[in-house]
Amino acid sequence: MEIVIDIEGATPLFTQLMEQIKQAVLSEQIAPGAPLPSIRQLANDLDLNNKTVAKAYRLLERDSVIQTKGYRGTFVHPDAKANCSFDLNEWVLTKLSKLITEFKTSGVTDSEIRIGFTRVMNNKNL
């Protein structure tokens, strides 16, 4: 399975990497439990910064698409295919849309929603 990264593309590099790994899982080009290259190997092969690949791997691990087993390395998660179908961004948008619609029907103005949203996001206790 070959990964192709366009370094001048509009999509961020780590997103390109994530999307292609998810695509490989969905199309069954890589099987659950299959070993993945180390961050260093992939970064060196693609001539990218280690941090870019690490970020993609971290987000994929958060989404349970891959899993890191200590010194043994990174592997495709056993439930990766099911977890790939779940779009976290879409889920966030749906939830926020619902909430904002609720606010608007209660008469809250756009600027009040923005101020409230910013205050909540800036709250370090969250």
């Binding site: 399975m1 990964i3 366009d6 370094i7 080009q29 993945l36 190997q41």
Partner: peptide, 8 residues
């Protein structure tokens, strides 16, 4: 475009 194989 840069390419790499997704195998260890």
């Amino acid at each position: 475009k840069r390419t790499a194989e997704l195998s260890r």
